[in-house]
């Protein structure tokens, strides 16, 4: 599932996956109040879903026939969406880091390594604008740092999407819960500079 060896192969598949993510967003939005959705609906969706989820369906069906609707169709769409965000976020970030890393080693590989004394990374690698400017100025370490920023953004995006899903469902407690988490993350990313 995680093909880290061939770069080109999975950049191509990444665009396909974006389609898949889009579809799961649409599905998540299409069935927000799934308590009203009859069981038959989950069968209709099956062909569109990737093979992995289809394998899980027997469990879910069994679950629904028990009359226990705690894990609803929209809950499953949200799970699938979050799962995809995490997976492709990590894959895209790794690809950028790998690309930047190879370019960095080609140019700087034979310089001496020195991490013994802490100086702190140069200021251009400490903020989003700095990293973008560094890349535009031809910095190869900047490309690695961009990959790391994409990586840090991945769980944050997951929280944002969860918040939107809870707002859509008018689930007040979890709107508050995810807002608190997001406030913490925002403070860390913005407040850390002051």
């Amino acid at each position: 599932m995680y093909k880290l060896n061939s770069n080109a192969g999975w950049m191509a598949s990444a665009s396909l996956k974006i389609e898949e993510i889009k579809r799961s967003i649409e599905r998540a939005i299409a069935f927000p109040f799934s308590l009203e959705i009859p069981d038959g609906d989950s069968e209709e969706i099956t062909p569109q879903q990737p093979a992995k989820t289809a394998v899980q369906l027997p469990h879910n069906c069994e679950f629904d026939t028990n009359g226990n609707l705690e894990k609803t169709a929209s809950e499953q769409h949200l799970e699938l969406l979050l799962s995809n965000i995490l997976k492709y976020g990590v894959l895209i970030a790794s690809a950028i880091v790998l690309l930047g890393g190879i370019l960095y080693l080609i140019r700087h590989g034979f310089e001496p390594a020195d991490y013994h004394i802490f100086r702190g990374t140069p200021s251009e690698f400490r903020s989003v604008e700095g990293v973008i400017n560094a890349i535009l100025a031809g910095s190869r370490r900047g490309i690695i740092q961009l990959g790391l920023l994409v990586l840090i953004a991945t769980p944050i995006l997951r929280v944002v999407i969860s918040l939107l899903a809870f707002i859509w469902r008018r689930d007040l407690i979890y709107i508050i819960v995810t807002s608190l988490v997001l406030a913490g993350l925002t403070y860390s990313l913005v407040g850390g500079y002051y």
Partner: peptide, 24 residues
């Protein structure tokens, strides 16, 4: 992931996240 992202913001601003070391 979210826990680590929360401290990553602070570390990034303080220059702890070095691209050359973090990459490998």
């Amino acid at each position: 992931g979210v826990t680590a992202a929360a401290s990553a913001g602070v570390y990034l601003a303080r220059g702890y996240i070095d691209p050359g070391l973090s990459m490998p």
